[in-house]
Amino acid sequence: MSDAALWPTGVEVTWLDDIDDGQRNMDLDVLLGEQVGRGERPPMVRIWRGPVKTGIGLSKKDVATDAGRAAQAALQAEGCTVVVRQTGGTAVPQGPGVVQVSYLFRRPATPATTDAFYRLLCDPLMQWLRSLGLAAETGELPGSYCDGRYNVLVGGKKLIGTAQAWRGGLAGMASSRPGYVLAHGCIAVDADMDWMVAQMNRFYELAGNPYRVDRATAVTLRDLLPGTLAGMDEQAAGTWAAQSLVSFFRTWRPSRENEGPGRG
C-alpha cells in the first residue's frame, strides 16, 4: 500500500489548543483520537500550540519509574511545566512557541508500518518549510532531543521531532475497541532552547537516567527566520506558525504517484 493511501478521506484540519493547561492540551490528542477511532468525528490534523508556561513534554516511559516521577515533581516544584504525552521517545520542548501537528486517524485494518505514517507526516512539514525558504531533510541526529530516524533537520540541526502512538484495536472491523493512530510532530518555532535543554538534562539527571541532550543539535525557526519573526514574542510566533500550518494543511494532499521520499 502506498503511503498516500493511508491519508483518509474527509480529513478535518483543526486548530484546537488549551494553552493555559499543558497536560489537558496534550491529553486532547487522546480524547480526540478516541473519538476519531469510534467514528464520532472525522479523522483530523490537529494543529496546536504548547502551554503558556514553558517546560518539557515527557513520554510515559520517562515517568514509568519512581525516580522518573520524583524528577517530574521536582521540576514542577521549580516552576517548569512538565507534561506527559502518549507517544514514545524522550523529552521534547513545550511552550507557546512550540507548535505541534497531530494526525489523528483511525487505526487502519490494512497493513501499514510506522514508517509510512512518519513519511506522511514529515513530507508536508518539509514542504511547509520549503515554502518558508528552508531546505529540510529527515534523519537521525545523535544527541538531539527525542532522537529518531524521522527528525526534521534544517542545516543539520533538529527543528521538528516526531513520534507516534497506535492505540486500541483495528478500525473498520466492528471492533469492540476501535483504535486510532496518533502521529505527532513538535516544531520548535520560538523557544529558549538553552533553558529547555537544561531542563531536559536536569530531568534525566534527577531520574538517574544517563541520557543527555546536546544543546548544539537543536535549532528553532526563530534562529532560521529572524526577519519573519521579528517583533513577535514566543506566543505570537507560535500563533503565526499555527495559522500558517492550518492554511498549508487545508490544501495539502499526499501525492498518489509519488509515495514519498526515501527513508531518512
Partner: peptide, 20 residues
Amino acid sequence: VKEDDVLAEVENDKAVVELP
C-alpha cells in the same frame, strides 16, 4: 481476552504501538 483487547505495548522508533 477478547479480540481487539490490548495485549501489550511495544516501542520501536519512538512509536508506541498497542498490540490488539
